[in-house]
């Protein structure tokens, strides 16, 4: 693993001057991922969303490399087309440089509207990296629920009301769905462990064929937490097993981090305004349901990873 001293010498591909909110998780995630491409030529694709609108306000681009955005639901197909062009031009001898390809999409553009396009691109085996910057709702349009929104969250289309306490459904497990495409590499990571993000991004760039990385990328506005605490919050997501870090390489599942003790989900929920209503009297059942869902998914994940399916000691 390269040290930060070395990594800091890699040319910055996502420069300051973009218009993401102060403290946006996307800025951190994108910088970490692109940094792992080291000195390669990179083409970045991007789905419509916060990242795209904040980074390419004409005539300014924050991308210090080639970049393409075309629409919301098609980052997979678009970057797949770029990669197909590369393959074709390369094989015909019309291009001599080597390139790597990465597409970024939010959870809306990845779990929901761009799901088909992504699935197609993965199945076709393009040599691309797709990175989902999962901030768990449609933040760019003003915090509407997506299929990545966790159960109980208060969003503008799953508002915590007098009768319905936030989103009623648990989140879609996209990383597992991507792994089910039998692609060479699928992983879930969290910025609280930069070494993990770096290692996975590097691996994703290096494998031959499609790679998928899901990064939990907090949104200070949508999640309503104290902005500077982003890393602590993501750490809580990992410790409570809300966001397990794992990878699936050539069909082999591997858990990358196992919390030493049982940390209840409240540790992750409490600092966030979007879950505040869950702590009001009468909503205890919601927290219980969320905890059950997390514990069940954790046990299933351990089983897939060939580990003993047991909860951490309380």
């Amino acid at each position: 693993m390269a040290t930060l001293k070395e990594l800091a010498k890699v040319e910055e591909r996502f420069v300051g001057g973009h218009r993401l909110c102060a403290g946006c998780g996307h800025g951190i995630s994108v910088r970490m991922v692109l940094n792992a491409a080291e000195d390669a030529n990179v083409v970045v694709g991007c789905a419509t969303g916060c990242l795209e609108v904040a980074s390419t306000i004409y005539p300014y681009t924050a991308w210090n490399c080639s970049f393409i955005h075309s629409a919301f639901e098609n980052a997979g197909a678009t970057i797949g087309g770029v990669e197909a062009a590369y393959k074709s031009l390369k094989k015909q001898g019309k291009l001599d440089k080597d390139f790597k390809f990465v597409a970024f999409g939010g959870d809306g553009g990845t779990y929901d509207i761009g799901f088909q396009s992504l699935s197609g691109a993965m199945e076709r085996g393009h040599n691309i990296v797709y990175v989902c910057l999962d901030n768990e709702a449609y933040m760019n349009t003003g915090i509407q629920r997506s299929s990545a929104t966790p159960m109980g969250a208060d969003t503008t289309t799953s508002p915590a009301g007098k009768v319905v306490p936030g989103k009623q459904q648990p989140r879609k497990d996209l990383t597992a769905i991507m792994a089910a495409h039998n692609i060479p590499y699928a992983a879930q990571t969290a910025i609280s462990n930069w070494q993990d993000v770096h290692r996975k991004a590097k691996k994703a760039f290096d494998v031959e064929g499609p790679a998928f990385i899901n990064i939990l990328s907090p949104c200070p506005r949508g999640w309503r937490y104290n902005t500077p605490d982003i890393v602590e919050l993501v750490k809580a997501a990992v410790e409570t097993r809300f966001w397990p870090m794992y990878e699936v390489e050539n069909g082999k599942w591997k858990l990358n981090y196992k919390p030493k003790k049982y940390v209840p989900i409240e540790e992750f929920l409490k600092p966030q305004g979007r879950f505040r209503h869950l702590f009001a009297p009468g909503n205890e059942h919601m927290i219980k349901a969320i905890q059950e869902e997390i514990d069940n998914r954790w046990l299933a994940l351990l089983e897939r990873c060939g580990e003993t399916p047991e909860l951490p000691p309380k």
Partner: peptide, 26 residues
């Protein structure tokens, strides 16, 4: 590593300065 705005300027692997032109004060 954690600056969303690439506003930590490093030189020779050492902290150099803040880029106050871009730092949003997060």
């Amino acid at each position: 590593r954690y600056c969303p705005d690439a506003s930590i300027i490093s030189t020779d692997g050492k902290f150099d300065s803040f880029d106050y032109k871009h730092c949003k004060g997060c």
